[in-house]
Structure formats: C-alpha cells, structure tokens
C-alpha cells in the first residue's frame, strides 16, 4: 500500500524529516509515537501533499504510484485521507456541500457517477450519528464554531464518508475525553478492513487500547528510531522516551 523510503523534507530551509523508512501493507494499522516536535505532523502533511513542505529526498509511493509529484487532490482521490491535528474552520461552506463536492470529486476521478442526493443525505445522517454529532451540524459551516472535540469527530465523520484506502490520523485523540475517544476509535475500527490501512499519530498509549495497532514506531528528530509490536507502546507509556536516548520536551 504505502512505501516510504529515505524520505526527507524541510520547511523554510530547515530539515525536519531526515530519512524516513516505512512500509504499510493493506489492512495494517501503524502507530507513530514520539515527543513533540519530532516531525509526526510533518510526515502526515507531507504524505497528504502540503506544499508548505519541500521534499528534499527519498520516495513515497501509494500502490506503486509516486506521491512526490502527485497533486494534493489526486492523492485524496487515490485514497489518502488525513485527519488534521488542527482542522480549520470554513464559515460559509456547509458541511453538506463540502462533503458532497468531495465525494463527487473522488467518484468522478474513478469514473463513477455522482452520488444521488437521497443516498448522500442518508449516508451523511448515518455517519454523523455514528460519531455522535448533532445532525444539525451538517448544515453549519465546516467546523464553524465547533469545539476541539467536535472538530476531531468531524474529521472521523469525513473519513467515514470518504472511505479512504489509507487514513492518517494526526493526534486525533489529543484533547478528547474518554467518550469522544471511544467514538473516534469505533469510527476507525468500523473502517478497518483487509484492504484499508491506518497510520495513527499519537502521543498517548490510551488510544491504542481501543485501536490495537499491528506496529508501533517511535519518531524522534525526524527519524524512526525504533519499531515494534503493540507492546512497544506499553513500554513507552511505562518508561517514557528517555530510555531510547531522546530528551523529552
């Protein structure tokens, strides 16, 4: 599915990612952990196609197609979805209009017909309930006036609507209470299938109690310094990052 080799990226001349290697196969869930500032969001953004970051070396492919030169919208149409750590508010563009345009853009790319209005509404209502948001939110502006937790749930809602091949969750668990955390976890678990993969960027082990990863990686100073199974997360929880020779910020 996703293959990253020796990926290097910089922002405004400062190198942030210093050679990342990672392989995610279909159906796998990978957790990426690491202290603040280690480059987790940078990696997520680079994969999603944020042009603020310059890729200075290495390669990343999705199902064999190089992502490096691929336009942002095409990555989404190929099946990448990024749940933002800090989703923006877009007043004036309703969630419904936004979701429908997104779905139809993806469908058009795949040579499919536009979704009909009735099944779209049905699906939107179903998914918004699934993430425990008031269906009235569908008519509001995208994330407009949403609380932090509501924004995170709205990201999951979008993910459920778009059914990506590869979902990247950038600290979707941060700042959530336990109920909201369960909603997010249920959403991700509902999407899990042998064809879909998930990369979860997280700070805390607790999300991993609800979404059990196949692999855990530790990112520090722009490099993956350790990889392991789900037990690695527990070990990190217990010992912190110190034992890996990283200063915690």
């Amino acid at each position: 599915m996703l293959k990253i080799s020796n990926l290097q990226a910089s922002v405004e001349g400062t190198q942030i990612l210093k050679g990342i290697d990672l392989v995610v196969r279909p159906g796998e869930v990978h957790a990426i952990m690491g202290p603040n500032g280690s480059g987790k969001s940078t990696l997520s953004q680079v994969l999603a196609g944020n042009e603020a970051y310059d890729i200075t070396g290495g390669e990343a492919t999705l199902d064999g197609k190089s992502l490096i030169e691929m336009p942002t919208e095409q990555r989404a149409r190929e099946g990448i979805f990024l749940a933002f750590q800090y989703p923006v508010e877009i007043p004036g563009v309703s969630n419904l209009q936004f979701l429908r345009t997104a779905i139809n853009s993806i469908r058009e790319y795949r040579g499919e017909e536009e979704i009909d209005a009735v099944s779209f509404m049905k699906r939107a209502k179903e998914k918004i309930k699934q993430v425990n948001l008031d269906p009235a939110f569908l008519k509001r502006g995208v994330n407009e006036g949403f609380s932090g937790g509501e924004k995170k749930r709205n990201e999951i809602m979008q993910m459920l609507m778009l059914e990506p091949k590869l979902a990247i969750l950038d600290e979707t668990d941060s700042g959530l209470d336990i109920d909201a955390l369960k909603v997010v976890a249920d959403g991700v678990n509902a999407l899990r299938s042998p064809e879909r993969s998930v990369i979860m960027v997280t700070h805390y082990q607790r999300l991993l109690d609800y979404i059990v990863p196949d692999y855990v990686h530790v990112l520090a100073k722009g490099k993956i310094i350790k990889s392991g199974g789900k037990e690695l997360a527990l070990e990190l929880e217990e010992k912190g990052y110190g034992w890996l020779g990283i200063d915690e910020e």
């Binding site: 942002t72 989404a76 563009v93 345009t101 979008q158």
Partner: peptide, 16 residues
C-alpha cells in the same frame, strides 16, 4: 488546502 486534501480540485475549492 483543507478542501483540496478531501479530493476537491483547487479551482473548485477556490470557488467554494
């Protein structure tokens, strides 16, 4: 950028 990461073309995103 947010709109485009959802598969919406840059033209459409700007229009929206």
């Amino acid at each position: 950028y947010y709109l485009v990461t959802r598969g919406i073309s840059p033209d459409n995103a700007a229009t929206m």
